Amino acid sequence: MGGMMAVPLAVARAARHPVFNPLVWTYTYVFRGTPLLVQTYLIYYGLGQFEAVRQSWLWDPILSSAWWCALIAFTLNTAAYTTELLCGAIVDTPKGEVEAAIATGHSYRARMRASSCPRPSAGRSLPIRTRSSSCCTARSWPRRSPCRISSASGAG
């Protein structure tokens, strides 16, 4: 899922669009700059602190489950790293390849698919994803309950 998210984000980042490029850069900067365990905690524990989130239709089926929160965190994190990988491949495509694709009549989409996209390299990211998945087992995921601060604390 992160890979599917990364393709349009990488194209938007490589296109240097004045609106999309800073948004995608900020997204990748934040998700690549924070540890995956922190992201997972923020999604699992942090979103539950907002009443609006707990009252939304997403709370009961998705956001209250540790499994779904981990999947969301992994997807967003993987998409950020893959976006930068693909953006680098698009930007560093040799000029001669692009000119050859234009000369042979390739459309923009065909040029992106044939010459700019990197060759399959899932083997390089597999150890990283496997190592990162251990953060979900680093801590047991107890069932959350909303924090309630009682005014009758017993302190006199």
Rank of each mutant, 00 (worst) to 15 (best):
M1V: 12
G3K: 02
G3A: 09
A6L: 05
V7A: 13
P8E: 06
P8A: 06
V11W: 04
A14Q: 06
A14K: 05
A14L: 06
R16S: 10
V19T: 11
F20Y: 07
N21Q: 15
P22F: 02
P22S: 10
P22R: 12
Y27R: 06
T28S: 00
T28R: 01
F31N: 10
F31C: 07
R32A: 09
T34E: 05
P35E: 03
L36P: 00
V38K: 00
V38I: 11
Q39C: 02
Y41T: 05
Y41N: 09
Y41F: 15
L42H: 05
L42A: 15
Y44R: 04
Y44E: 09
Y45H: 08
Y45K: 06
Y45E: 09
L47M: 13
L47E: 01
L47D: 02
Q49D: 10
F50D: 02
E51N: 11
A52C: 00
R54H: 04
Q55C: 02
W57N: 03
W59Q: 06
L63S: 01
S65I: 01
W67K: 09
W68M: 14
C69R: 00
A70T: 03
A70C: 13
L71W: 04
I72F: 11
F74H: 03
F74D: 03
L76Q: 04
N77A: 08
N77Y: 12
N77D: 09
T78M: 12
A79K: 04
A79M: 03
A80M: 06
A80T: 01
Y81Q: 11
T82G: 00
T82V: 14
T83Q: 08
G88P: 05
A89I: 07
I90D: 01
V91I: 15
V91T: 14
V91S: 08
D92S: 15
D92T: 12
D92A: 13
K95W: 09
K95D: 13
K95V: 13
G96R: 05
E97W: 07
E97L: 15
E97R: 11
V98F: 01
E99K: 11
A101S: 15
I102Q: 14
I102D: 11
A103K: 04
A103F: 01
A103W: 02
T104N: 09
H106R: 13
H106K: 15
H106T: 02
S107K: 05
Y108H: 13
Y108E: 14
R109G: 03
R109H: 10
R111T: 15
C117T: 14
P118C: 04
R119P: 00
R119T: 08
P120H: 02
S121M: 14
S121Q: 12
A122N: 11
A122I: 10
G123I: 08
G123H: 12
G123N: 10
R124E: 12
S125W: 11
L126F: 07
P127A: 05
I128D: 04
I128H: 07
I128G: 02
T130A: 14
T130I: 11
T130W: 03
R131Q: 06
R131T: 09
S132I: 00
S133T: 08
S133N: 05
S133R: 03
C135G: 00
T137A: 12
T137G: 13
T137N: 08
S140R: 11
R144P: 06
R144D: 05
S145L: 07
S145Q: 11
R148W: 10
I149H: 12
S150G: 06
S153G: 14
S153C: 13
G154H: 06
